[in-house]
Design a protein around this nucleic acid. Structure first.
Lengths: 168, 168
DNA sequence: GAGGTAATTGTTATGTTATCACAAGTCAAC
DNA sequence: GTTGACTTGTGATAACATAACAATTACCTC
């Protein structure tokens, strides 16, 4: 039931290593680019990495507040904006929520698979998809700056267990 | 500068006819399916059709209130939900806004091109794109229920005029 | 056309998500 | 060690969305 083509989010895996690896990568990318990965920002990235799911800004904020950071919304939104702007996190439009980037530093286009059963969100490569979209847009004279591709459905595990999706 | 491949939204066109045609189609679809296109719902669809742009629920609500309908948010949200559920309108996630469907009644997958210069939103066919997405998802064991593809960029006209996109 | 049923609409109230504006603090370069 | 840019904290508010319930309307059956 564990498809080798599936992203880590859909497979049992050593999550501590998964987090450590992505975090190390993010730190390296930040260093290379002269980005300031300050304590709040670093902590927000860690929080996002805890689960392969998207977190709302207020949920992140609550965690930050518990840990002695500021407790007003801009504290969370600013850190999240920083991470998204610099490719260390993504915003899931459909959920008004955020998720850590799986491959910080690598230029890539991603699509997101949102499981309506367990709320897991997987990032999958979408360079080909994006190329198709670019050319469809170009045929109309439209020049794409950025695009989001988000799918809602059931992940392998939830399907196997016959779980139903929640309307959310 | 007027590309024949471009959707109507990106071309000068007889908008009154454009509206009348889509509205007639929507009414026919509703009749065929036994949907009740009540006065509020019909009016909301007309309002959305006025421009090839997305409208927020509160903007729609304001119009409804001026015309003697209820003036509380659920009035607008319910009508919009009805239209979206029945394929007569689409929700643009990125904008938290709604747009009338160009092709009500036809089974189709759509992608949306959102111009950051003039706020025009065009719906383009995305059946092929969706098939690509479906198979990429299927390879991971994920079953897509619904997907949204939204691109932000500059429409042909704004590009021609060297207009810059607003960050929004 | 009267009664029962389901769908629709309106309203109050509240919940959730996001931004503005300004003060205070931190960092790095010079 | 002072300047200037960036970052953080805070209070206030804006924008988007839903829950719950009452009142009305449409439709079906008899």
């Amino acid at each position: 039931m564990t498809d080798p083509a599936a992203p880590a989010a859909f497979r049992p895996h050593d999550h501590a290593r998964c987090v450590a690896g992505t975090l190390a990568l993010a730190r390296r990318v930040a260093a290379e680019r002269g980005l300031r990965l300050t304590p709040v920002r670093h902590r927000v990235l860690e929080i996002l990495l805890e689960r392969h799911a998207a977190m709302g800004a207020y949920e992140v904020l609550e965690r930050l507040a518990e840990e002695g950071f500021g407790h007003q919304p801009p504290v969370a939104y600013r850190a999240l904006d920083f991470l998204v702007t610099n490719g260390l996190a993504h915003r899931i439009q459909r959920l008004n929520a955020f998720i850590a980037c799986d491959h910080p530093g690598e230029a890539h286009h991603a699509a997101f698979l949102v499981c309506s059963g367990c709320k897991t969100v997987a990032e999958i490569p979408a360079d080909e998809l994006r190329a198709t979209l670019d050319s469809a847009a170009a045929a109309t004279g439209f020049a794409i700056e950025r695009a989001s591709v988000e799918a809602v459905g059931l992940c392998p595990e939830c399907r196997a267990q016959g779980r139903a999706g929640q309307p959310a």
